[in-house]
Design a protein around this nucleic acid. Structure first.
Length: 802
DNA sequence: GCACCCGCAGTTTTT
DNA sequence: CTGCGGGTGC
C-alpha cells in the first residue's frame, strides 16, 4: 500500500498502532477521532512528514489548517524538527491566515485593494457604531453589539444581505444595515474576520479557474480541531477539495466531538457527521490511548462524558497506573475555597516537588479569578492569568497602528476617527460630525472631505492630514523599525502619555511595538510570517492576468515553482502593510508576564489543548458550572459537560475538584448547590478531603459536607465525605487564617434547588432557575410555564416542590 | 472639549 | 462589587 522503505521509516517509531495507521493512511478522506492527550498533534505532523518523505506529495501540495496561530506554530515547529523542510510552498496556518493569503494573491479578482486591511472585533464594532450614527439608527432598538453579532452570524452561514430571509421588520432593518456596512467596508478597503472567510469562499465558488487550480494543487488537506469548524469553514474546505470524484485532494479531519466547547460561537460538531456522510469516509480511526493522565483521572473523564448522548463514542485508556485519587474539597465560601487552594499549592510546591508553572487553576468564568488572585497575592505566590487584553488590542497600540494604517491607506475611516483627535488637537465632535456629513454627501472618505470644512475647524483638520501626509513621505524607503519610530515621535502619542500619571506602562508598550516590528521583519526577511503568510508568492504565478490567463495551464509550473513575484498584483506587499496584517491576524500573546515560574490561572475554555501536572477545577457549583444559562436545555448542558471533560483531562498526575457553598457574585452572596457533575463521577476514583469544621462539630449539628444529605436536599445524595483525611497534617487543621468562616445561622429551609419543578398558588407550575440569599432574604428565580420568569422572596411566596 | 458621575449589566473566545 | 459607556455640566 505504501512504499516499503517508508514502513520502517524512523518517523513511525514510537507510534502506537492506531497512530501509525492514521499516519500511513492512503490518500483518501479520513476522520481521526483523537481523544484528549492521545498524541493528536503528533499524528498530524508525522502524517505530513510521512507524506513528504515517501514522496507522495511536495510541500506545495499540502494545506494544513488550524484555528489558532499557536497551534499552527506548534505544528510547524514540530514538523521542521522531523524533516529539513521548505516551508515556503506549504500552506499551513489558521483559516483566516490562509484566507488572507488567498485574497492577497487574488485581490483583483475579489475586488479588493492590494493593501486591504483587516478589522478586528473592536474595529468592526466601531465601524458599525459609526454607521448607526450616520443613518440615525435607534441604538436602543438595534444595539450595535447585536448588529455585529447578526452580521458575523450571517457571514458564518455564508449569507450576503440578499440571502438572509427577512421575515419581520426588525430583520429587514438589520439586513439593510448589513448591506450598508458592507458598502462602507468596501469603500474603505477593509475586511472583517468573517469577510476574510466568506470572500475567500466566494472566490473559490465563483471563479472556476482559480478553484480548479487550488483543487489540483492541494492533494492533502489536513484539518485540526475539526469539531470547532463552523458552517462556512466546512463549506470552504469543500470548495478546496470538491466532492468525491471531482478530482480534489484528500481531507484528513482530526477532531474530538467530546471536546467541542465552542457551539456558542458557531462551531458545528455536526460537521463531523456531515463529513463522514458527504465524503463517504471509509477510514475512521480512534486514538484512545492517552499518554497524559493517570487512571483515576481518566476514569473520571470517561464516566462523566458517558452521561452525554449522541457521541461518536470513545473511551480513553492509559497504561500508566491508577495514580492518586481525585481530591474533592467542599468549602464554606469562595473565600475559603481560595484559602484552601493556596495552602494546597504551597504543599504541592514545597512537599511534593511540583513546579508552580505545572499547576493550573481553572474556573468557568473570569469573574471567579478575583478571589483566587487575592489569596495568591496575600500568600506571595506568583501566578499568571491567561486571557486579558492582548498586545495588539491595547488602546495605545491600536492608536499607533491607526496612524500606521492611515499612512498605508488614508481612506480607512475607522483609523481616521480613532486618532483624528488623539492626542487631543482641538477637533471636537461637532467638527467631526460636520466632516462626516460632508463625506457622506459626496460619498467620499473622510480624508477627502477635509478640505470642504471651513474655518478654524477645517484648519485643524487640515493640520492633521498634513501631519499624516508628512509622515507618509518621511517613511518612504524606511525600514519598518524607522517607520514605527517616526510615527511614535510625530503622532504625539509618547508625549501625550508622558504627561499622564499612569502613562508609563503605555509608553513601555509603545516602545515594545518597535520591537514587535523589528522581530516581525527578522522572522521572514520582511514580514513573511511563516505561519499566516500575508502574501503568496507562489500559487498565483500561473494565474496571472496575462493575455492567455483564461487558457493557462494551471498545472504546469505550480507545484514546485520557483518563487516568483505575484503576477496578478505585479507588486509585493510593503513591510508596513504586511505588519499591519500580522497585527490584525495575530493579536499577540494572551498571557501576562511570561517567564517566571508561576501558577497558571485560566478559564476552562482557555485550558483546552494544554496540560499540567496538577489541576484545580474550582467553583463546581450549580449555576456556575454547569452555568445557569446553559443548564436549561440538553445541548447546553452537554456542552457544559464537555467543558468539564476538557477540564479533567488537562491533569497529568493530580486533580482537585472544589466547590463553595456560598459565593459572592454581583456583589451578593449566593448559595449554590454543588455541581451535578460530582454525581457523574465514579466514586472509586474520588477522595473527599474536606475536613470537619469545629464550629459545626461542637454544636453537634450535621457538619456541612459531612455524611448524609444536606437538610434542604430533596433527594438523598451520595455521602460527600466518607472519610475526612485526618491523617494528613495539612488537611486536619486547616488554617483558614485571615478571616472568620462566614456564619451560617440560617441554613436554607425552603427545600428548593435549581432545576426543581415547583408549584405556586397563583402562577402555577414552574422551574427554579436560581436561588439567592439565605433565611429571610432567600429568593428564588422561577420560570413559570404561563407567567414568565420571576424572582420570589421565599419568606413570602409559597413554593411547593412538584 | 473634557472631566466627572451615574447607571446598568454582568458565560465561555479566536481570528 | 466592578467596569464601562453614555450623558451632563463646566
Amino acid at each position: 500500500m505504501f512504499p516499503e522503505n517508508a514502513s520502517s521509516s524512523p518517523l513511525l517509531h514510537n507510534l502506537n498502532p492506531e497512530q501509525r495507521a492514521a499516519v500511513t493512511l492512503p490518500a483518501e478522506h479520513a476522520l481521526i477521532l483523537a481523544g484528549a492527550g492521545s498524541g493528536k498533534t503528533r499524528v498530524l505532523t508525522t502524517r505530513i512528514a510521512w507524506l513528504l518523505q515517501t514522496g507522495q506529495v511536495t510541500p506545495g501540495g499540502i494545506l494544513a489548517v488550524t484555528f489558532t496561530n499557536k497551534a499552527a506554530k506548534e505544528m510547524l515547529t514540530r514538523l521542521s524538527a522531523m524533516l529539513p523542510l521548505n516551508v515556503r510552498g506549504m500552506w499551513m496556518g489558521t483559516f483566516h491566515g490562509l484566507c488572507n493569503r488567498m485574497l492577497r494573491a487574488h485581490h483583483r479578482s475579489v475586488n479588493l485593494p492590494a493593501t486591504f486591511q483587516i478589522l478586528d472585533t473592536q474595529d468592526q464594532l466601531s465601524a458599525i457604531k459609526r454607521l448607526c450614527k450616520q443613518f440615525n439608527v435607534d441604538e436602543e432598538r438595534f444595539p450595535p453589539k447585536q448588529l455585529q453579532y447578526f452580521i458575523s452570524g450571517c457571514k458564518e452561514e455564508g449569507q450576503r444581505p440578499g440571502d438572509v430571509p427577512a421575515r419581520d421588520e426588525d430583520t429587514r432593518k438589520k439586513v439593510e444595515l448589513y448591506q450598508l456596512y458592507e458598502d462602507q467596508c468596501q469603500r474603505e478597503g477593509v475586511v472583517d474576520f468573517g469577510e476574510l472567510m466568506l470572500r475567500s469562499y466566494e472566490l473559490l465558488r465563483d471563479q472556476d479557474a482559480i478553484r480548479e487550480h487550488y483543487r489540483r494543487r492541494f492533494r492533502h488537506v489536513l484539518v485540526d480541531e475539526f469539531q470547532d469548524t463552523n458552517r462556512l469553514q466546512y463549506a470552504w474546505l469543500k470548495m478546496i477539495v470538491g466532492l468525491p470524484g471531482e478530482g480534489g485532494g484528500a481531507i484528513m479531519a482530526v477532531g474530538d466531538d467530546d471536546q467541542s466547547i465552542y457551539a456558542f460561537r458557531g462551531a458545528r460538531v455536526g460537521n463531523m457527521a456531515d463529513f463522514v456522510r458527504e465524503y463517504q469516509v471509509r477510514h475512521q480511526i480512534k486514538l484512545e490511548q492517552n499518554y497524559r493522565s493517570y487512571g483515576h483521572i481518566l476514569d473520571s473523564a470517561n464516566a462523566l462524558i458517558g452521561h452525554n448522548t449522541a457521541r461518536l463514542g470513545k473511551n480513553l485508556r492509559t497504561t500508566q497506573g491508577a495514580g492518586e485519587p481525585v481530591r474533592v474539597f467542599e468549602a464554606a465560601s469562595d473565600f475559603e475555597e481560595a484559602q484552601w487552594l493556596v495552602d494546597e499549592v504551597r504543599q504541592l510546591v514545597r512537599n511534593d516537588g511540583f513546579a508552580r508553572h505545572e499547576i493550573a487553576v481553572l474556573y468557568r468564568s473570569n469573574a471567579q479569578s478575583r478571589v483566587i488572585e487575592t489569596a495568591l497575592v496575600n500568600a506571595g505566590i506568583p501566578y499568571r492569568v491567561y486571557g486579558g487584553l492582548r498586545f495588539f488590542e491595547r488602546a495605545e497600540i491600536k492608536h499607533a497602528l491607526a496612524y500606521l494604517r492611515l499612512i498605508e491607506n488614508p481612506r480607512d475611516d475607522t483609523s481616521f476617527l480613532r486618532v483624528v483627535n488623539f492626542p487631543p488637537r482641538g477637533i471636537g465632535a461637532r467638527t467631526i460630525e460636520q466632516l462626516q456629513d460632508l463625506a457622506r454627501e459626496s460619498g467620499c472618505a473622510l480624508v477627502d472631505a477635509v478640505s470642504a470644512v471651513p474655518g478654524k475647524a477645517g484648519a485643524n483638520l487640515g493640520a492633521f492630514i498634513a501631519k499624516i501626509d508628512v509622515l507618509r513621505e518621511q517613511t518612504q524607503g524606511r525600514t519598518l523599525r524607522e517607520i514605527i519610530e517616526l510615527v511614535l515621535e510625530h503622532s504625539g502619542l509618547i508625549e501625550h502619555y508622558r504627561a499622564d500619571r499612569e502613562g508609563a506602562d503605555r509608553i513601555e508598550n509603545l516602545e515594545e511595538l518597535v520591537n514587535a516590528g523589528e522581530s516581525f521583519v527578522m522572522q521572514e526577511g520582511f514580514g513573511r510570517d511563516a505561519v499566516a503568510l500575508p502574501l503568496d508568492e507562489q500559487a498565483p504565478a500561473a494565474l496571472g492576468q496575462s493575455p492567455a490567463s483564461q487558457g493557462l495551464d494551471l498545472d504546469a509550473p505550480v507545484l514546485d515553482a520557483p518563487l516568483a513575484p505575484d503576477q496578478e498584483t505585479g507588486e509585493t506587499l510593503s513591510p508596513l502593510a504586511a505588519f499591519l496584517t500580522h497585527a490584525a491576524l495575530e493579536a499577540g500573546d494572551n498571557q501576562a508576564q511570561a517567564g517566571q515560574d508561576a501558577v497558571q490561572l485560566m478559564t476552562v475554555h482557555a485550558s483546552k489543548g494544554l496540560e499540567f501536572d496538577a489541576v484545580f477545577i474550582t467553583g463546581l457549583e450549580e449555576g456556575l458550572f454547569p452555568h445557569e444559562n446553559s443548564a436549561s436545555d440538553r445541548d447546553g448542558l452537554e456542552e457544559e459537560r464537555r467543558l468539564m471533560y476538557v477540564a479533567i483531562t488537562r491533569a497529568r498526575k493530580r486533580l482537585y475538584l472544589s466547590h463553595a457553598q456560598t459565593r459572592m457574585l454581583h456583589g451578593q452572596t449566593r448559595y449554590n448547590l454543588r455541581s451535578r457533575f460530582f454525581d457523574e463521577l465514579p466514586e472509586g476514583a474520588l477522595k473527599w478531603i474536606t475536613p470537619k469544621r469545629s464550629a459545626s462539630a461542637s454544636t453537634g449539628a450535621a457538619p456541612w459536607g459531612s455524611s448524609g444529605a444536606m437538610p434542604w436536599e430533596a433527594a438523598p445524595r451520595r455521602n460527600p465525605t466518607p472519610q475526612p483525611a485526618w491523617g494528613r497534617s495539612s488537611l486536619s487543621a486547616p488554617d483558614f487564617g485571615a478571616g472568620p468562616v462566614p456564619e451560617r445561622k440560617s441554613e436554607p429551609e425552603h427545600g428548593l434547588r435549581v432545576g426543581m419543578a415547583v408549584f405556586h398558588n397563583k402562577f402555577g407550575e414552574g422551574k427554579v432557575l436560581a436561588i439567592e440569599g439565605a433565611g429571610a432574604d432567600a429568593r428564588a428565580q422561577v420560570q413559570f410555564t404561563r407567567h414568565g420568569t420571576k424572582w420570589l422572596a421565599l419568606s413570602v411566596a409559597k413554593l411547593t416542590p412538584v
